[in-house]
């Protein structure tokens, strides 16, 4: 197999420069998933904030926050470089805290959330992907530093 594999072998791309893009290899899958979640969270938040803000303001604002975080990580992954990598690490950590925090909050105090957010119940409405995504992202960003 001439192609690089996911395992211990370092990709050929690592040899030709220090500025390795974060959006290649396994990072490409993350770009796709963050893209999906950026679009999903942003369009959901936009619709709900415009059409039915009074029903559950807190939930809709939290959805908007998650959309901003997703968009920023997506931008960092595509841009690449060490600065973007660090910024993405901070945002992924923020995302993880957000999922865990909002997830717990929605379980403890249901009355505060008449309607769901993207991060409600640890992202159950989205197949729990929101809770796996930041963990995978952090692992990938850590490996990208060593490469």
């Amino acid at each position: 197999m001439p192609e690089t594999s996911a395992g211990s072998r370092t990709p050929k791309a690592a040899a030709d420069g220090a500025r390795r893009s974060l959006g290649t290899g396994p990072g490409r899958l993350l770009v796709a998933l963050y893209g999906v979640f950026t679009v999903a969270a942003a369009s959901r938040a936009a619709y709900q904030l415009i059409a039915q803000f009074d029903r559950a303001p807190l939930a809709y604002i939290l959805s908007a926050v998650s959309a901003v975080v997703y968009a920023f990580i997506l931008f960092s992954l595509v841009r690449g470089g060490e600065g973007a990598r660090r910024a993405a690490v901070v945002c992924c950590a923020l995302e993880l805290v957000g999922v865990l925090g909002v997830g717990t909050w929605t379980l403890v105090d249901r009355s505060a959330f008449p309607d769901a957010t993207v991060w409600s119940n640890f992202g159950m409405g989205y197949l729990f992907i929101p809770i796996f995504l930041p963990v995978t992202g952090l692992l990938w960003l850590r490996r990208a530093r060593r490469a």
Binding site: E3, T4, S5, A6, T24, G25, P26, G27, R28, L29, V31, A32, L33, V36
Partner: peptide, 13 residues
């Protein structure tokens, strides 16, 4: 992305 990760991306999509 001409590696296995390109295939994985399409599968995810």
């Amino acid at each position: 992305e001409r590696t296995r990760w390109g295939s994985a991306t399409v599968a995810a999509g």
